[in-house]
């Protein structure tokens, strides 16, 4: 079997390598690094030193430990939201494309409805309603990420469903699951996966946005929450603390999002070229 071409793409290799390096650094920070991510381990707002690699925050909690914890929170939220969006988008988009008529009409209607609703305001309202917890953030993000995926999957299905080989398979008596599994899934899966990867990045951004507005779990450490605390600290503009308190989560967030989004973009280009 021929290996997919994107495994040989240099840019993707570099991007994945960056993510792996980040993973290793933050795994060190979570597992081996001596300081706790929720308990004070030094003085208030200590600058970076040998004991505290990135200094401490206002409560004396180590920044690097928080940062490491935040990485896994972000990635976990991204993965879970993407997994749900992947399932919902794949199933609903697939159903709409396979069965035409009223099934397609009604699912397409719901898709368009979700695409039309402005996302952040409704996420803020729902975040406030469900209460700030990780599970709720995941569910809210997933709820507003599946529609674009479903739309793409549906379009792809509609494009394929009328081709002769599907008609032939149907006329030989191939059932829904058989046809989807053998003839449609191999085409749909790459598109679906690329979009799911893109959702990971989007989910991380949205979680950070909600956390920045104070709508994420206040007990879990996330990068958005760290920035929220730093920026709302009185007098932060008049001291140097923002350099080690605010900038690390900000740049980590930017870097992680960029890596994930660019990976999905590169794979997509690769798929188009193939």
């Amino acid at each position: 079997m021929k290996k997919p071409a994107f495994l040989f793409n240099q840019r993707i290799t570099v991007l994945v390598a960056v993510l792996v390096i980040l993973f290793i650094i933050f795994a060190y920070g979570s597992l081996i690094y001596p300081h706790s991510w929720f308990q004070p381990s030094g003085g208030s707002l200590e600058p970076p030193s040998v004991t505290h690699v990135l200094g401490t925050d206002d409560l004396g909690i180590d920044i690097f430990a928080q940062l490491s914890r935040g990485f896994f929170t972000s990635i976990l939220i991204g993965l879970m939201a993407a997994a749900i969006a992947f399932m919902l988008g794949g199933v609903l988009g697939g159903l709409a494309g396979y069965f035409k008529g009223w099934v397609d009409e009604s699912i397409s209607f719901v898709i368009n409805l979700f695409l039309a609703i402005p996302q952040l305001p409704i996420m803020i309202v729902m975040g406030a309603f469900f209460g700030p917890s990780i599970v709720n953030v995941v569910l809210i993000v997933a709820l507003f990420s599946w529609a674009p995926i479903a739309k793409i999957v549906r379009a792809k299905m509609v494009e394929r469903i009328d081709s002769n080989y599907i008609r032939l398979a149907k006329s030989y008596g191939g059932g829904f699951f058989y046809i989807v599994k053998t003839h449609l899934l191999p085409d749909i899966l790459p598109v679906l996966s690329v979009n799911a990867i893109a959702v990971i990045g989007k989910a991380i951004v949205q979680e950070a946005s909600l956390a920045f507005l104070g709508l994420s779990d206040p007990l879990s450490k996330s990068w958005g929450l760290m920035m929220n605390k730093a920026i709302n600290f009185k007098g932060i503009y008049f001291m140097d603390a923002w350099i080690w308190w605010l900038l690390p989560p900000l740049f980590c967030l930017m870097g992680t999002i960029l890596c994930i989004r660019l990976i999905s973009r590169e794979i997509e280009n690769q798929l188009i070229n193939d």
Binding site: G201, V205, S209, L246, L253, M254, I257, L258, L262, R265
Partner: peptide
């Protein structure tokens, strides 16, 4: 391509600290 993937509020925070906090005549 790079810029389109970054959320605006992150750039806003950067501008807030790198520009507004340093330049006198730009308010915070």
């Amino acid at each position: 391509t790079l810029l389109s993937e970054i959320p605006a509020f992150l750039i806003g925070i950067l501008l807030l600290f790198l520009v507004a906090a340093q330049v006198k005549f730009i308010p915070l």
